[in-house]
Design a protein around this nucleic acid. Structure first.
Length: 633
RNA sequence: GCUGAUGUGGCUCAGUGGUAGAGCAGCGCAUUCGUAAUGCGCAGGUCGGGGGUUCAAAUCCCCCCAUCAGCUCCA
């Protein structure tokens, strides 16, 4: 029997040799670290005997596949511990997730944080028992009978939903048996460091129509040091939380008086305004025209656009002079009214109208999250009206614009293509044409993308840009939506070459997504240490004694004259204290001035992240600073 | 919206049935100081809101609101 390894080499073994034995033949170290394997494309346990020629790949904790199995086995240990401590608990599902695992339980007992410690202790016992995991397969009927006997209703439901031809496998470790496709680690003893992290409710199968189960989250590693490092990273990430930094740096606040409706402080407004002027600059460069449309528009408009029917539960409404009005949840209808306010020629196309539009959407109270999920936010919206032939070019243009924005901030992102949802307007042909245009643009750009079937907007398919933030969460920011429906609904026309009226198509798109969310992401991305061009205060002047106040004023005037945001700490505090405060405020540059500096007309410079830079010439400093700001470096 | 937890001065938190506390911030006075916290003093809270139990409620019970974690949803 011939086995081909990952590096292309082959080894010979008699049929029936177990993978773990083959692994040991390759390297003792690999056998020790091996967790699961892939044989001829199928993920398998190490204990599986090999009966035929094939390719073999061995995974350790360094591999995605190895971590998956490791966490998956961890979740079985969790379930086993819970069943030992709370007999009668029914099991939901217990998969591995990024950075850990969870298991859902249906139990009379309401788990508390204190219980987590007890469960964790039991889990350690199970690990110490080093129980081997054994796989067995059952016929569908047998499996259903088996889990029915154990009153595991959820497992029975899962089995019933498995496809006809699916092999039904069970994994057994000690007294614990669970329905599971696998693969798993050879034994529970492989899991060295484990920690339960949190407790939460979760609907069975993710549907709010179903019963809410109790979900226990945890993580596990091969070494205690890795676990400690992970916990340290979580703590670090918490320090970057934009809600915490937003308060500490006095950027914004959320008050009970307006849940989900953020208030911006002067320092937060500086960041907003800087982002907006950058936005205006690039939109001018990319050939957009800015407009502004009203926040409240009448019911007929929203009926016409379809929002009144398709988006009703998210809209705030009001009554004016006994007529129904809605506060806009999107900017497109307003934009189309602007389009329709005059006649258009095919020569005008593409027409790119942009709007920083304040929209309101009723989000579920439990979904609100700082500036990331709010009920009122400003979209950096744009609507592009064009000919069908211009679609691909325009989409590519938007992709480039969005890319240049994200690159400026050094963000990683990936794109997803969402297709026709169940609740959709328009013909299948239009949807196909629109989806094809988006795909073509992505392919011509050579971009990798994931497809989200059924996740499009009700009026058209879309490309979404997902940013990766500092904690590794992804946030949808930019989106490009292609729309054949709204131009129809609003009877948008243009005069073609033939002198006849024709129907344009339109693109809806955002780059930042929402200014509010983007500020939140930036705050976490930079951990509050904004690049100089965005920093609310760019320079803080720290006089050592009151004698230098005059010189300080002089320097401040010199800087603010050229648009630099500068503050002077005039308090009669010691210099160490002033530096400490400026440091906590994450101010990019501090100018320390004492008698010496005033006498020589220079400054002692302190740079954020670098500390004391010594004495520098003020004029030179100012020039470099202005350059840095202008470059948005 | 659902499940669970939390809510005490601007901020961080102590206080579990018997007179509301601390540190930081603020204000005043003193200090004029060389690279991450100078000292002293003063003010500041109907304990998220409403109702109830009790001689007495921040503390016990009920309802509501908000926040946090997760689910669902999403820019």
């Amino acid at each position: 029997m011939k086995i081909t390894l990952k590096d292309g080499s082959t080894v010979e073994y008699p049929a029936g040799t177990k993978i773990i034995e083959i692994t040991a033949g390759i390297s003792k170290g690999l056998a020790k670290n091996a967790l699961v394997a892939k044989f001829n494309g199928n993920m398998v346990d190490l204990s599986v005997p090999v009966e035929e020629d094939g390719t073999l790949e061995i995974f350790t904790f360094a591999d995605e596949e190895g971590q998956q199995a490791f966490r998956h086995t961890s979740s079985h240990i969790l379930a086993q511990a819970v069943l030992r401590l709370y007999p009668g608990t029914k099991l939901g599902i217990g998969p591995a997730i990024e950075n850990g695992f969870y298991y859902d339980f249906d139990s009379e007992h309401k788990f508390t944080p204190a219980d987590l410690e007890k469960i964790e202790e039991e889990m350690r016992k199970i690990i110490k028992e080093d129980l081997p995991l054994e796989r067995q397969t059952l016929a569908r009927e047998e499996a259903i009978e088996f889990f029915s006997d154990k009153k595991e209703d959820y497992k029975v439901e899962l089995i019933n939903d498995l496809p006809e031809d699916a092999e039904i496998s069970l994994y057994k470790q000690g007294e614990f048996i669970d329905l599971c496709a696998g693969p798993h680690l050879p034994s529970t003893g492989k899991v060295k460091a484990i920690k339960l992290l949190s407790l939460a409710g979760a609907y069975w199968r993710g549907s709010e129509k179903n019963k809410m189960l109790q979900r226990v989250y945890g993580t596990s590693f091969t070494k205690k040091s890795e676990l400690d490092e992970y916990i340290f990273r979580i703590e670090e990430a918490k320090k970057r939380d934009h809600r915490k930094l937003g308060q500490e740096l006095k950027l914004f606040t959320l008050l009970e008086e307006g849940p989900g409706f953020p208030f911006f402080f002067p320092k937060g407004m500086v960041i907003r305004n800087e982002l907006e002027s950058y936005w205006r600059l690039i939109h001018q460069q990319w050939g957009y025209q800015e407009i502004k449309t009203p926040i409240i528009l009448n019911r007929q408009l929203w009926e016409r656009s379809g929002h009144w029917h398709h988006y009703r539960e998210n809209m705030y409404t009001t009554i004016i002079d006994e007529e129904d009005y809605a506060i806009k949840p999107m900017n497109c209808p307003g934009s189309m009214l602007v389009y329709n306010a005059e006649l258009h020629s095919y020569r005008d196309f593409p027409i790119r109208t942009a709007e920083l539009g304040l929209v309101h959407r009723h989000e579920l109270s439990g979904a609100l999250h700082g500036l990331m999920r709010v009920r009122s936010f400003t979209q950096d919206d744009a609507h592009i009206y064009m000919l069908r032939e211009q679609m691909t070019e325009e989409i590519k243009g938007v992709i480039d614009l969005v890319d240049s924005v994200y690159r400026l901030f050094g963000f990683e992102y990936h794109v997803e293509l969402s297709t026709k949802p169940e609740k959709a307007m328009g013909s299948d042909e239009d949807w196909e044409a629109a989806t094809a245009a988006l795909e073509q643009a992505l392919q011509e750009k050579g971009m990798a993308y994931k497809i989200n079937p059924g996740d499009g907007a009700f009026y058209g398919p879309k490309i979404d840009f997902h940013l990766r933030d500092s904690i590794g969460r992804t946030w949808q920011c930019g989106t490009i939506q292609l729309d054949f429906q709204m131009p129809e609904k609003f009877d948008l026309t243009f005069i073609g070459e033939d002198g006849q009226k024709h129907r344009p198509v339109m693109i809806h798109r955002v780059a930042f997504g929402s200014i509010e969310r983007f500020i939140a992401i930036l705050t976490e991305h930079y951990a509050g240490a904004f690049p100089c061009w965005l920093a609310p205060v760019q320079v803080k002047i720290l006089p050592i004694t009151q004698r230098q106040l005059g010189y300080a004023d002089e320097l401040a005037r010199e800087l603010s004259k050229d648009g630099v945001r500068v503050e002077i700490d005039k308090r009669s505090e010691k210099i160490g204290f002033k530096i400490r405060e400026a440091q906590l405020e994450k101010i990019p540059y501090m100018l320390v001035i004492g008698d010496k500096e005033e006498e020589n007309r220079n400054v002692a410079l302190r740079k954020r992240g670098e500390g004391d830079k010594g004495t520098v010439d003020f004029v030179e400093f100012k020039q470099e600073l202005l350059q840095e700001i202008a470059a948005r470096a």
